[in-house]
Write a protein that binds this DNA or RNA. Structure first.
Length: 150
DNA sequence: TCTGTTATTGCGC
DNA sequence: GCGCAATAACAGA
């Protein structure tokens, strides 16, 4: 198992992985930067939208809330869905989606920041600013990446 | 088992 | 707008 730290704005992103499986991602204010997988670094600097071939341990069958995490993984870069939308896809309750997001072991790889509430942005742990920054970054980058063919 | 936890939603003032 | 009830799933005791 390997660990590494990457910068995102004022935050440090701590990554734990082995091979192509991401086990844990967490945020902190301090930490010495070190090697993290290429895709993570590229994504955080706004240079790519894909984590492939990296995968989160959370979408493994049998992992708690894996069905919900899989549904969240299908949200495209730069767009959002509500907690209700995810609940419908994963065939569960919207309140349960909230619990799953809070306990998400690997934010970013499971793009939980793309899940917003019906009447606002929803929440984020440890700091809502991270969610706002990620959404803003994705929204701006979508223009130049051009996934959406017009 | 039972309890606490939870990043929501919609209805009635 | 605000308060509040409904409500699912998991961890920990």
């Amino acid at each position: 198992m390997k660990t590494g730290v990457c910068r995102f704005g004022l935050w440090k992103v701590n990554v734990v992985w082995s091979e192509n499986i991401i086990h844990k991602i967490s945020f902190s204010r301090t930490g010495e930067e070190s090697y993290v997988p290429h895709q993570i670094r590229q994504y955080l600097s706004g240079k790519t939208a894909e984590f492939l071939p990296l995968k989160s341990i959370a979408i493994t069958d049998g992992y708690p809330y894996s069905k919900i995490y899989k549904a969240v993984s299908d949200i495209p870069y730069g767009s959002t869905k509500t907690y209700s939308d995810i609940a419908k896809i994963a065939d569960t309750h919207h309140r349960t989606v909230g619990v799953a997001m809070k306990r998400n072991p690997t934010p970013l790889v499971i793009p939980c920041h793309r899940v917003v509430s019906k009447s606002g942005i929803g929440g984020f742990t440890p700091d809502l600013e991270i969610k706002k920054s990620l959404l803003k970054m994705e929204k701006e980058n979508t223009k130049s990446f051009r996934f959406i063919t017009d």
